[in-house]
Design a protein around this nucleic acid. Structure first.
Lengths: 250, 250
DNA sequence: TTACATTTGTTCGTATGTATA
DNA sequence: TTATACATACGAACAAATGTA
């Protein structure tokens, strides 16, 4: 392993180089979710930089929620296990403010050829194969949201319906553990629509009921798109939460 | 001005103390939006801490978008001027992805007694007086969103309709410049609803059209609530954008 | 254009404190 | 108790950007 100093940084900024290498270790799966990365001391040796420079690089990855520091224990790769990052990606709450975990029922699962628009969004070649699955999410025993999800076959090779039904944890945690696919960022676009017949049936709402449609692209490292999702939410008793700065008081 | 070292920090962490004092300088209006705060050298003297400690404190305020650093120029208090933070708070885009500035028309303005629920949300005593105003926002010459806004009279004493009509910049910039009220954070809750008659008229939609209702509380320093807003968005040709991590690539 | 002062950005390293196993 | 790992605090030296004389 050569020192980063040996090759001048492209941007000329050393800590950005360290960050880039750390990011690569994450993307390559050298550092795996839930596991500790090497100690600061070891990373200082590995990268040939000072402790301050290393810290500045790791600081940014921590700020981006990719790593989690624990004083006295080590620095860990973030996971999608319950409580960890779950509510960063599940933004539905009851009108009274209460936020709970949904129960998930797999409604359908099949292989498809991704259509043109989805291929564009996921950066796939035209006609690429993909998995299409539909989950119905319930809160307090009542169906609240439909998730129509498309996953590129290339990234999720061998995915089966049984796996999806048997998964013990969150979907994004399942992506991590079963396929090494790490969702670290999402982009969502929200609209209001009227319920279709299918949605009336699945969510148990009246014809003409207003629903919220959420288009989401989920990204992994290096902004690689890994999931396309259309969620349909019944906001009769629930709402979609958007808040800036979940942590830090000012 | 006494050194921070003279009084042991409550939490025992010096840079948090520095941050707290800096935050107070912002909340007190000692450091005003758009202006430069004292140089690092001066702040080091003022607080009696090392440059590293000072930097760590300021770093957090920069990360929270309260301050903006410019190498060679200084560190400035963030403003709500166009292009600056505007799109952090205006999350509406055209379906084709294009994001533009809306034109705003003041539809109504009056003094009210805030009702109980609004008082709770804004942390006001029961029956507190407030201003109620309604804006209609247009994109590409077409009305797209209605903003129903409530402002506590205590924070916006003397606000007039003429001021609101004459303001050259964004509403939040107007709060800053005219009343020293600095919006730094918002919390929003979104639902889908059917258009009321009033909304049909103002937005030019059909009866039964689905609209998006956005409930927002805006906060200033120390999480003080300063504005209550109910926005109603026509998502026929526009959508509401939610994306994590607007900056930094991973 | 040049030179210079000012201000923030980067990199280095040390010493000590605190949390964990 | 001990070793390990991260957290805080210090500050020096130099680089890069900016504004001005």
């Amino acid at each position: 392993m050569s020192n980063l100093r040996d090759i001048p940084a492209p941007g000329g900024v050393l800590y950005k180089d360290v960050k880039r290498h750390a990011l690569q270790a994450l993307a390559d799966g050298e550092w795996k979710p839930g596991e500790a990365i090497p100690s600061e001391k070891k990373l200082v040796e590995r990268f040939g930089v000072s402790i301050g420079t290393l810290r500045k690089a790791i600081d940014e990855l921590v700020a981006e929620n990719l790593l989690i520091r624990h004083q006295g224990r080590g620095t860990f790769v973030a996971t999608h296990r319950r409580d960890d990052h779950f509510f960063r990606f599940f933004k539905v709450a009851h009108l009274d403010g209460h936020r709970g975990y949904p129960t998930v029922e797999l409604e359908s699962f099949r292989k498809i050829k991704a259509d043109k628009s989805v291929c564009t969004l996921l950066g796939l070649e035209a006609g690429a194969r993909a998995f299409q699955l539909t989950n119905v999410l319930s809160l307090d025993e009542r169906p609240v949201m439909i998730d129509d999800i498309v996953l590129p076959e290339r990234l999720f090779a061998g995915l089966t319906e049984a796996q999806l039904r048997g998964r013990p944890n969150t979907l994004y945690n399942f992506y991590q553990e079963a396929f090494g696919v790490n969702v670290i960022q999402t982009e969502e676009r929200l609209r209001s629509v009227l319920a279709t017949e299918r949605e009336q049936a699945l969510l148990g709402v009246e014809p003409g009921a207003p629903l919220m449609r959420i288009h989401r692209v989920a990204f992994s490292y290096h902004r690689q798109p890994v999931e396309w999702r259309v969620s349909t939410l019944n906001t009769e008793e629930h709402e979609f939460i958007v808040s800036q700065m979940p942590k830090e008081e000012s």
